[in-house]
């Protein structure tokens, strides 16, 4: 049994940021991470929008913060069961360890939509249909290649895969994919200056500082093409490229176009941990994201006393938003722990 002041479930950016903030305020914090490494989805990122900061810089900064003496990191530790005693939260983990703290922070994050559910897009059937995560890994390596060894002349990015799609049950906008598609198309152009890049969108949503400028830059400097239309069917060509069908809705004409790589901008869904713990704690809201007490007034609170929420376990957020939300959660927890002492 390990007793601390605050237990953080989830060692992604949100969990780590609040752990650091709380430790700085003098609290003992334990972070439970089910994976081998902390930093969550940030591990799969090459660079970050809007300023193309190298993700590894942000990662190492985060890891540095975790050397704080008040923070203990527990890798390979998945929270399985959560128990509540009076003013105490207990967590049982898969490895059999037990933790206890007066405050519990849920920062269990998101998972990417599995595009196999959209069979018509050919993911898992044609090798050159990849997800945004796979594309990021290619950027990381600095080589964007077709699995069939052909020279990559054309890349397509398709937005809203698994978001804004009632057929797969996700009505919501995942918020980050548009910006990410713009960022990745610029990355693609940096690696392959000769290639033609096309972004297929239903709406381009660039709300947030510097994002619209990024969009503008992608057109002005990088010649990225934007086509307002949703790709509805993908079929292979004889030379194993991809034949894509969509309507260019603005010219009101159907369009056929061949690509070497199709990148699916997969949407954000509640992670398995978010779903499981949300149901266990009875705080599952829409689409299985964790439900905060009040969107405008108490967004880091849950309906249980001493249980707090931070980051993308609540809804899709960009990285700066998730981290800011984590700091605000730390502030709320601090206040809560103070009232407990009185």
């Amino acid at each position: 049994m390990t007793a601390v002041d605050v237990l953080v479930i989830g060692g992604g950016p949100a969990g780590l940021e609040s752990a650091y903030s709380l430790a700085n305020n003098g609290y003992d914090v334990a972070v439970l991470e089910k994976e081998k490494n902390i930093c969550g989805h940030l591990n799969q990122a090459h660079s970050l929008f809007p300023n193309f900061q190298n993700a590894s810089e942000v990662r190492s900064a985060m890891i540095d913060k975790m050397t704080h003496p008040k923070i203990s990191i527990h890798n390979d530790t998945e929270a399985i069961r959560i128990k509540r005693d009076i003013d105490k939260w207990g967590v049982e983990t898969g490895s059999g360890k037990e933790f206890m703290a007066p405050a519990l922070l849920l920062a269990t994050g998101f998972k990417s939509f599995d595009p196999k559910y959209k069979e018509e897009l050919g993911y898992g059937i044609y090798d050159n249909v990849i997800t945004t995560t796979q594309f990021e890994a290619m950027c990381q390596k600095g080589s964007i290649v077709s699995p069939h060894g052909q020279k990559v002349k054309r890349i397509a990015f398709l937005n809203c895969v698994g978001s804004r799609d009632e057929k797969v049950g996700n009505h919501y906008c995942s918020r980050v994919c548009c910006i990410n598609a713009v960022k990745q198309s610029i990355e693609a152009k940096k690696v392959l200056p000769e290639a033609d890049i096309y972004c297929f969108y239903m709406d381009i949503r660039m709300a947030g500082q510097f994002y619209e400028e990024l969009y503008r830059k992608s057109q002005e400097v990088y010649n990225v093409n934007y086509i307002r239309g949703r790709i509805s069917e993908v079929s292979p060509t004889i030379d194993k490229r991809l034949h894509v069908k969509c309507e260019d809705t603005l010219s009101q004409t159907p369009m056929k176009i061949t690509f070497d790589i199709l990148v699916l901008m997969t949407g954000i869904e509640a992670s398995l941990g978010t779903v499981a713990l949300g149901q266990q704690l009875n705080i599952s809201g829409e689409y299985n994201f964790a439900k905060s007490l009040s969107l405008h007034m108490a967004d880091n609170y849950s309906s249980h006393k001493g249980l707090f929420l931070a980051g993308t376990c609540k809804r899709p957020l960009t990285l700066p938003e998730a981290v800011a939300d984590a700091r605000s959660a730390a502030g709320e927890i601090k206040n809560y722990l103070k009232t407990l002492k009185q």
Partner: peptide, 23 residues
């Protein structure tokens, strides 16, 4: 309808004629 054009793109008739359901 949010006019994404997926219907027109997948249309069987569209393979033969400029038919456009969305429009």
């Amino acid at each position: 309808c949010l006019m994404c054009g997926a219907c027109t793109a997948s249309c069987t008739a569209r393979n033969h004629t400029p038919f456009n359901l969305r429009k």
